[in-house]
């Protein structure tokens, strides 16, 4: 009887210490699921989901406060990826938050720009360069196409344009979507 109590007590103490040590040693900073959801979001930082950026939306999804179909830039592919990660059924994009469009980048008409800096303040990724009463310009490689700079512009000089196709980023079309003679066909 006593032996059993001592043995079980020792075991409990050992495991207790082990678990206590592990809790400190292998402590996980932050919520890893938030990181994983955030990694799937397009980082447009447009706020169309109703949250102040992609990370807050990821936190809301993780906390069960938001649904997975609120991100228009991510589109159906993004919803699919989130559904796979979270083990839920994918659903169509919620139209309340907008509709999925191809990526368009902000372009400032530099002739019209009055240098008010309002767009600079609106840009969530600091992709607009300029100063008060100086012409502004968009750093194209850093623009996420979030549209947030368009509304504040008092002279409507910001346009969202589809980026031009260049050879370096050109993609082969899906076979059959375009009549084209290629090596595979020609053989």
């Amino acid at each position: 009887m006593l032996t059993a109590i001592i043995a079980l007590g020792t075991l409990a103490a050992v495991f207790g210490l082990l678990l206590g040590y592990s809790a400190i040693r292998f402590r996980v900073e932050g919520d890893p699921i938030v990181e994983r959801i955030d990694a799937l979001l397009p980082q447009t930082q447009c706020g169309q989901c109703g949250f102040a950026g992609c990370r807050p939306y990821a936190e809301a999804i993780a906390g069960g406060e938001a649904d997975i179909n609120q991100c228009p830039p991510g589109g159906d592919a993004g919803i699919q990826a989130l559904a796979e990660l979270l083990g839920v059924e994918p659903k169509p994009l919620n139209a309340e938050h907008g509709e999925h469009t191809e990526l368009r980048l902000a372009v400032i008409d530099e002739q019209t720009c009055i240098g008010c800096t309002l767009c600079i303040q609106a840009c969530p990724v600091d992709a607009i360069l300029g100063a008060a009463k100086q012409m502004h310009t968009v750093i194209a490689s850093e623009c996420t196409g979030c549209d947030l700079c368009v509304a504040p512009c008092p002279v409507d000089c910001i346009h969202m344009l589809a980026p031009g196709q260049v050879i370096a980023t050109w993609k082969w079309p899906y076979p059959g979507s375009e009549q084209r003679l290629t090596a595979g066909d020609s053989a």
Partner: peptide, 20 residues
């Protein structure tokens, strides 16, 4: 390759947004 480019761009956007 395009997905990889998008991922790199998203990482840059995340970094810049966090910094902002």
């Amino acid at each position: 390759w395009d997905l990889e480019r998008q991922r790199t761009k998203a990482d840059l956007a995340r970094q810049r947004h966090e910094f902002r």
